[in-house]
Design a protein around this nucleic acid. Structure first.
Length: 879
RNA sequence: GCCGAAGUGGCGGAACAGGCAGACGCGCACGACUCAAAAUCGUGUUCCUUCGGGAUUGAGGGUUCGAUUCCCUCCUUCGGCACCA
């Protein structure tokens, strides 16, 4: 049993009695059971008094939301006298209803933005809607409701729900990505990227339903046999000319994170996603007369390349295939094409392949090597063809053993002699080069790329000889922008027979989506089917030309929306430079980890590309990033409509009020981790908010301070209260900085419990009490903005608004303890606790510890071998 | 398979920088109030115990006077990538 606990318990015991204002009530602080009973009865008889108002969040929350809005309290306006803070949280897709996950992402972000504001920053905290996208279009196909209508209805509904959070969103800066005044600039950016040479067209495969005659998104392809979601027809791959952005041009820069305060996990995810590997590009001749470049990370093993493997779809396959092998090759190609991606990518799948009959020449030793095709070589990576070095690559080894191809070791590990005929696995590690002509004896390490002396030597030699060069390859692909959809920003390009593709002139932007469109049940793009929309004039010659009927990936909108918030209605450019110069970059960006690779990489790419065009400044758009976790359903599963286990924030707000919901979301889990929802758990937060209300409104507080009664509190009580206040302030300040919301709430709960205790001890009306109430409410303000405002402005009569107050500074001196309790260990076990003055010397602490009878008992008369006094935290005695 | 994150009471979690494990809250038990219930308030709540104490932060080892924290091996869960040449 800890002394702390006893004290707290005592405080709680007397709370009830104190709700009386009578003189008798004062007596009962001496806590005789009989007296308490009397007091409680009196309370009942008096209640409700005018002063003893019940907590009604429905009334106060609506009241303050209306007033804040009317007063434009959260308008963010450039103010050069103040440091700026651009806090951004990812904008929602208007799906219809706000989800508890939105609340979980947004309300702690809001609390932190509010904290920053109270710290003196000029804070911009905007909100908007990522309004284009597939769900609205699907609904249109299903129900015949126009996506525009549905989207804007949803936005209206969700805007209202968002406002019920009591967040400090500056709604005057709201953006909706499907508004023409927004997508005009999305289109403008496309054109800028096009003009900068970063947009190009190429053929790319899409998943296609041959029956519905339409492209399918990944989630519209169902099951292992990959059928169309609508009609069950097996999906095929279809090649279409599509628009791409050259994101890979920035791959190397995107791998640099030195200006970013981002979670390590996100940086790792992006690094893996980009998948940079260093090596060499090597030129091979084939006997069919066509040359081929291959990429390898191990040019040091070139002398061990005993065959080549092409991807079955590789365009050169037909050229190198001999007539005798043609049938086998065709058969293999056909079965590879039939396989789903999933089957093909199964890791444990046995290697298969077919000899083409063709040969290539290994350029380093002029050996004639056979060309095979196999589905373990992917057309999408590297050049779609590899040199196979079975002695030093597991996959090539398995393939060579299966088809009885030669294995020649060229890297000899220390103390072992590798023999191609008998070795049981590939040797993928360090050793000394052998069988490698001029390089025999060169040391190959486990280092990758040019850091490996063997690779470096060979690459330099290849370059000299003109048969290869240093090369870097990426897993990362260029960004495919085209979507064969209606509900997106039209790609502002026009095709003319004579002049090819040209951008729509600026003065004709935006290219508006036609509203008079119809949906076929198949999902074919209405833009393609529209009778007149695509007809236009060539910007070059004025002759009849056609518009691009594809629209843009919605990631395009989210790549720059943070810039539109700067000046949502500005019409001379995508943003007002003045606003940009003041607010950018985004200081704090919050959102889900699921956007780690796509959205966040696209946004960084976009910013860098714009920087190089002189449109933006700085290298990064968002300096600090934090990810929240996920709120799971009570049974630990994911929440989903189909499972019927979603938690509706609207109903929680009705039942508990927004302040309680906010507090619980901050309290119930580590923010970055998330946790299952607990419908009982929220009662605890509701209780805390209610007890806060009672602490400030109960007659035992309000009347006591009004009556100027003599102060009963001892100096010690007052000092303890002040200490707790400043300790809490120190902790809450630090926790806000670090996004540790759960411990902010628990610290505030502790302080509140302490304040109840202090009230019992007669502290109401003292300067310490008044300071405690002020600081408590200021710390509460970012968490529970409504109740804090009500208690501050209305109940205590302090100047409106609490949200314009400055964050208090903690007093280090006041937070200091007078005495400290130090545990004493004997042989590593805690045996006693001693109380010493906070400024006691180590010597004094040691003496006190050794003098303790308990410690003496455990010493059993033995002299201590060693006594360690650890910085006023612990004494460790070793015998 | 590779990369990353995380494993602490019945539950969510706390523990600044190697120094009292379990703050704060939920739940539960008992009690007060109540005709009763809800609400509220109070007390207790890691496990074992011969009441001396012992064990305990996924498991096992190591470093240290001292490890939830650092190192090694392993297990489990989650996330990412997945034949990447």
């Amino acid at each position: 049993m800890k002394p702390k606990k006893i004290a707290a318990a005592k405080a709680r015991k007397t709370t009830k009695a104190v709700s009386s204002k009578s003189k008798a009530a004062k007596k009962i602080t001496a806590k005789k059971p009989a007296a308490r009973k009397v007091a409680a009865k009196q309370v009942k008889a008096q209640a409700p008094t005018a002063k003893n108002i019940a907590y009604d969040p429905q009334i106060i929350e609506k009241k303050w939301q209306a007033k804040w809005e009317a007063d434009k309290l959260y308008r963010a306006v450039i103010d050069e006298r103040k440091p700026k803070h651009y806090a951004l949280t990812m904008l929602p897709y208007p799906s219809g209803d706000l989800h508890i996950g939105h609340w979980y992402a947004m309300t702690p972000s809001d609390a932190r933005a509010r904290f920053k504001r109270m710290q003196g920053y000029n804070v911009l905290f905007p909100m908007g809607f990522d309004a284009f996208g597939l769900p609205a279009e699907n609904a249109a196909i299903r129900d015949g409701i126009h996506p525009m209508k549905r989207t804007y209805q949803n936005i209206e509904r969700m805007r209202k729900q968002l406002k019920s959070m009591g967040a400090m969103f500056d709604w005057s800066r709201e953006v909706v990505s499907s508004d023409p005044e927004f997508y005009r600039w999305t289109q403008w950016f496309f054109i800028q990227l096009y003009k900068a040479g970063l947009a190009y067209r190429k053929m790319a495969a899409v998943d296609w339903c041959p029956k519905d005659n339409t492209t399918l998104a990944r989630e519209q392809v169902i099951g292992e046999n990959r059928v169309c979601e609508r009609c069950g027809t097996p999906v095929i791959k279809k090649d279409l000319e599509q628009w791409f952005f050259k994101t890979t041009k920035y791959a190397d820069e995107l791998l640099r994170f030195d200006e970013l305060d981002w979670p390590q996990t996100v940086k790792t995810l992006q690094t893996n996603w980009i998948g940079r590997s260093e090596g060499a590009s090597v030129h091979f001749k084939t006997e069919a007369g066509e040359d081929i470049e291959i990429f390898t990370t191990r040019p040091d093993t070139l002398w061990g390349a005993t065959f080549m493997v092409f991807a079955p779809e590789h365009p050169l396959v037909d050229k190198v295939t001999t007539p005798e092998q043609k049938a086998a090759v065709e058969a293999y190609k056909a079965q590879a094409a039939r396989q789903s991606d999933i089957e093909r990518e199964a890791a444990d799948k046995e290697k298969t392949g077919v000899f083409t009959g063709g040969y290539a020449i290994n350029p380093v030793n002029d050996e004639r090597i056979p060309i095979w095709i196999a589905d373990y070589v992917l057309l999408s990576y590297g050049t779609g063809a590899i040199m196979a070095v079975p002695a030093h690559d597991e996959r090539d080894f398995a393939f060579a053993r299966k088809y009885d191809l030669p294995i020649v070791p060229v890297i000899q590990p220390e103390g072992v002699t590798l023999d191609g005929a008998t070795m049981e696995r590939a040797h993928e590690h360090e050793g000394v080069m052998i069988n490698s002509g001029p390089f025999n004896g060169t040391r190959a390490t486990d280092e990758k790329g040019m850091a490996n002396p063997a690779i470096k030597a060979v690459v330099e030699w290849l370059e000299q000889k003109g048969i290869g060069r240093r090369a870097v390859n990426y897993r990362y692909r260029d960004w495919l922008i085209s979507r064969q959809r209606y509900w997106g920003a039209p790609i502002p390009m026009v095709y003319c027979e004579k002049h090819g593709w040209n951008p729509v002139p600026d003065d004709q932007l935006p290219v508006l989506l036609p509203e008079d469109v119809e949906w076929k049940p198949t999902g074919e793009s209405p833009l393609k089917l529209h009778p007149t929309w695509k007809n236009t004039a060539c910007p070059e010659c004025g002759e009849p030309a056609v518009r691009e009927t594809d629209t843009m990936d919605t990631f395009m909108c989210s790549s720059w929306y943070h810039l539109r918030y700067l000046s949502p209605h500005y019409n001379k450019g995508p943003f007002d430079e003045k606003e940009y110069n003041y607010w950018m970059p985004v200081d704090t960006y919050t959102g889900g980890i699921e956007h780690a690779t796509m959205h966040l990489l696209y946004t960084r790419f976009f910013h860098k590309a714009l920087r190089d065009m002189g449109i933006t400044e700085g290298n990064e758009p968002m300096i600090q990033l934090r990810n929240q976790g996920m709120v799971l359903a009570e049974d630990n599963s994911k929440m989903s409509k189909s499972r019927g286990n979603v938690v509706a924030p609207d109903r929680l707000v009705e039942k508990y009020g927004a302040d309680t919901v906010r507090a619980y979301l901050m309290f119930f889990a580590r923010w970055e981790m998330g946790a299952p929802w607990d419908s009982q758990g929220i009662e605890g937060s509701a209780r805390w908010i209610r007890r806060t209300w009672i602490l400030f409104t109960d007659p035992s507080t309000t009347l006591r301070s009004a009556q100027d009664e003599p102060i009963a509190a001892t100096d010690e009580t007052k000092k303890n209260l002040r200490r707790k206040v400043h300790q809490t302030l120190r902790k809450v300040t630090r926790d806000f900085e670090n996004f540790e919301f759960n411990t902010i709430i628990s610290s505030l709960m502790e302080l509140m419990n302490e304040m109840y205790k202090a009230r019992e001890a007669g502290a109401v009306g003292t300067p310490e009490w008044n300071e405690a109430t002020e600081i408590y409410l200021k710390m509460l303000a970012p968490v529970a903005p409504h109740i804090a405002e009500e208690l501050w402005t209305h109940q205590m009569g302090k100047p409106y608004s609490i949200h314009q107050q400055t964050w208090p500074k903690y007093d280090e001196e006041a937070a200091k303890e007078d005495t400290i309790e130090i545990p004493v260990q004997v042989n590593g076990k805690v045996r006693d606790r001693i109380v010493v003055a906070a400024d006691a010397s180590e010597k004094a602490i040691e003496a006190t510890a050794l003098a303790s009878p308990t410690v003496q008992k455990f010493l059993e008369g033995r002299p201590p071998k060693k006594v360690i006094v650890a910085q006023k935290r612990l004494v460790s005695v070793v015998v």
